[in-house]
Amino acid sequence: MDSFTEHLHSHPISAPGPASGLEILRPLRDWIDRLDVNNRFFAHQVCRIIPCCCPFERTFSLMGREIHIPALCELNPVYNELVGLRFRSLSYLADVCGEDISHYIC
């Protein structure tokens, strides 16, 4: 092996450290993950505010060509936490409150 290959094998690629730009949102992400859904009104509000699918994703035709705009919501740094909160809210309404949640499903 040449010295360059040895250098690559001896220094594995690591994830960005705490100085990365998204780590500043870690407290917000943790707070959203810790939110406990135990109130019917709160669960309904969460399900109304957080959409079940990205409202920006579109496919349309322009001059005979199909153009697809991808789901931009996934660029949101707290997207996964919000989806988790919505899922916990739906589970609370269905399992604990016994409500029909079909009107919240896309």
Score class of each variant (00 low, 15 high):
Asn39Val: 07
Cys54Asp: 15
Cys73Ala: 15
Leu72Val: 11
Asp33Ile: 09
His11Trp: 01
Arg29Thr: 15
Asp95Cys: 10
Ser102Ala: 08
Cys106Met: 06
His103Ser: 12
Cys97Tyr: 01
Ser89Thr: 04
Arg58Trp: 00
Leu62Gln: 02
Tyr92Gln: 01
Leu28Lys: 02
Arg40Glu: 15
His103Met: 11
Asn39Tyr: 04
Leu72Trp: 06
Arg86Cys: 12
Glu6Val: 00
Leu22Lys: 02
Leu82Phe: 12
Glu6Thr: 00
Ser89Phe: 02
Val78Tyr: 03
Ile49Val: 14
Phe4Ala: 13
Ser14Glu: 12
Ile24Arg: 11
Pro27Asp: 08
Thr59His: 01
Val96Ala: 05
Asn76Met: 09
Ala43Cys: 13
His7Phe: 14
Ile49Arg: 04
Val78Ile: 15
Pro70Ser: 06
Phe60Gly: 07
Leu8Ala: 06
Ser61Ile: 15
Val37Glu: 04
Arg88Leu: 11
Ala43Tyr: 07
Asp33Gly: 09
His11Gln: 03
Arg34Pro: 10
Ser102Cys: 04
His103Phe: 07
Cys106Phe: 09
Asn76Leu: 13
Cys97Asp: 04
Asp36His: 09
Pro70Gly: 07
Gly98Lys: 02
Ala94Met: 11
Pro16Ile: 03
Pro77Phe: 11
Glu66Cys: 08
Gly21Asn: 00
Pro51His: 05
Ser91Lys: 13
Pro27Glu: 05
Tyr79Lys: 14
Gly17Val: 05
Arg86Thr: 11
Leu22Phe: 01
His103Leu: 10
Cys54Asn: 01
Tyr79Phe: 14
Phe41Ala: 10
Trp31Met: 10
Glu23Val: 08
Ile49Cys: 08
Ile24Tyr: 12
Leu35Phe: 08
Pro18Lys: 00
Ser61Met: 08
Ser91Thr: 15
His44Lys: 12
Asp95Glu: 15
Asn76Pro: 05
Ser91Tyr: 09
Pro27Thr: 04
Val96Asn: 02
Gly64Met: 08
Arg34Glu: 15
His9Asp: 10
Arg26Cys: 07
Asn38Trp: 08
Pro12Glu: 06
Ile101Gly: 03
Asp36Tyr: 04
Phe4Cys: 08
Gly21Phe: 05
Val78Glu: 05
His68Asp: 09
Ile24Met: 15
Val96Pro: 04
Tyr92Cys: 01
Val96Trp: 03
Val96Tyr: 03
Val78Ala: 14
Glu57Asn: 01
Met63Tyr: 05
Ile101Gln: 03
Arg86Leu: 14
Cys54Ile: 03
Pro55Thr: 02
Gln45Ile: 09
Gly21Cys: 02
Glu99Thr: 00
Ile105Trp: 05
Ile32Phe: 05
Phe56Ala: 12
Ser89His: 01
Gln45Tyr: 03
Val37Ala: 11
Ser20Gln: 00
Ile101Tyr: 00
Glu74Gly: 10
Gln45Trp: 00
Cys97Ser: 05
Leu25Ser: 15
Leu93Ala: 00
Ser3His: 03
Leu90Tyr: 00
Pro70Ala: 02
Tyr79Val: 10
